[in-house]
């Protein structure tokens, strides 16, 4: 099986991912080169949404489950970091727990909290499918959204400012460049994890069930628990992205978890391409940059934006990744994973 040709095509599979990471890794140099630190801020936003969109695609593209509550998980991750930092700054314990501004504690806390909530939300939502799944996840998203607004102690409507200095263990990551690379490492890990998951036994069950549930049951597998696990994994990774957003911009607000933001995440995934693991990362980059460029151009930017998205999705069936795929998988002769 290990012919040189297969090894080569295996390597080729990783080229797009490595190119994306390399291009992102170079942005701080460009920012330094032209002396515009704003670029790093944008790049950090791209990376954070790339993590969330990649995570979402695990359930949308591979599980066939279009979730509209992922902004909720994103916000939950952000609020866990923000609330812990608030208690740290105000030196007031959260029940019996001390607050913290250390991501080495706050990130695992965000993972734990989001996993528990996602398990409950998933267990209920996955009783339904299709449009009902869409509606019920949307309802959950709005519960989280209004839940965040109700947190009067933590800013309510106005959002929660992080006033303490965010660290990662002994490392001060409040430096914009350092934080960017931290986020980039998390994106690389996310791409690696999701990439392994979708090709594993778990991934095969998830993918088969998304296209033909009857077949999966007939061979002896109940897809329910696999979908739930995928949902929780996806939610947790999205919460990590939200935690990074909050830590990076020292701020989290209910706006970051509105249902329209859930829609944005789906658009990023579809725009980039749900058929490949690295597609949504490209979609996130295109989304964030387009939003920025167009909104500086015209106040009616959303109209142009919508038009562009329609054009791209209609002309490239597999999203922007199709552009890359025609370049990278030419002559490889191997069928792309669907």
């Amino acid at each position: 099986m290990a012919e040189p040709a297969t090894n080569l095509s295996r390597l080729r599979e990783h080229v797009p991912t490595l190119l994306i990471l390399a291009a992102l890794a170079a942005t701080p140099m460009i920012a330094l080169g032209i002396g515009d630190p704003f670029i790093v801020k944008v790049a950090t936003r791209v990376v954070v949404f790339a993590i969330a969109a990649t995570a979402l695609n695990f359930v949308v593209g591979y599980g066939g489950l279009v979730s509209l509550c992922h902004a909720g998980f994103f916000g939950i991750g952000g609020y866990v970091v923000g609330i812990l930092a608030w208690h740290d700054f105000n030196a007031e314990p959260l029940w019996f727990l001390p607050g913290t501004s250390d991501l080495a504690i706050a990130l695992p806390a965000a993972i734990l909290v989001s996993a528990i909530i996602a398990a409950v939300v998933g267990a209920i939502s996955l009783r339904t499918s299709g449009p009902y799944f869409l509606m019920i996840t949307l309802a959950f998203n709005q519960m989280f959204y209004y839940g965040a607004i109700a947190l009067q102690k933590y800013g309510g409507d106005d959002g929660l400012q992080i006033t303490s200095t965010i660290t990662l263990g002994p490392l001060d990551v409040s430096n914009r460049y350092r934080f960017f690379y931290l986020a980039l490492v998390v994106l690389a890990l996310t791409l690696l994890l999701v990439g392994r998951f979708v090709d594993s036994r778990f991934g095969m069950v998830l993918r088969a069930a998304s296209k033909n549930e009857t077949r999966v049951i007939a061979v002896g597998v109940d897809p329910w628990l696999y979908r739930l696990a995928a949902f929780v994994i996806s939610a947790v990774l999205t919460a990590v992205a939200g935690a990074l957003l909050a830590a990076g911009q020292q701020f989290i607000s209910p706006v970051d978890m509105g249902w329209d933001r859930s829609g944005d995440l789906v658009v990023m995934a579809v725009l980039g391409g749900v058929g490949v693991v690295w597609g949504p990362a490209i979609g996130a980059a295109a989304f964030v940059v387009l939003e920025l460029v167009l909104s500086s151009w015209t106040t009616h930017w959303q109209f142009v934006f919508g038009l562009l998205i329609v054009l791209i999705v209609v002309s490239l069936r597999g999203g922007l990744a199709d552009l890359g795929r025609t370049i990278f998988s030419r002559n490889s002769g191997e069928a792309t994973h669907g």
Binding site: R196, D199, S200, R201, G203, M204, V205, A208, V216, V219
Partner: peptide, 18 residues
């Protein structure tokens, strides 16, 4: 997939099934 289904659970995340 059928072989996989009869050889125990599929909560195996790392190894490439193909």
């Amino acid at each position: 997939l059928a072989v996989q289904a009869r050889s125990g659970h599929s909560f195996r995340f790392w190894k490439n099934a193909r």
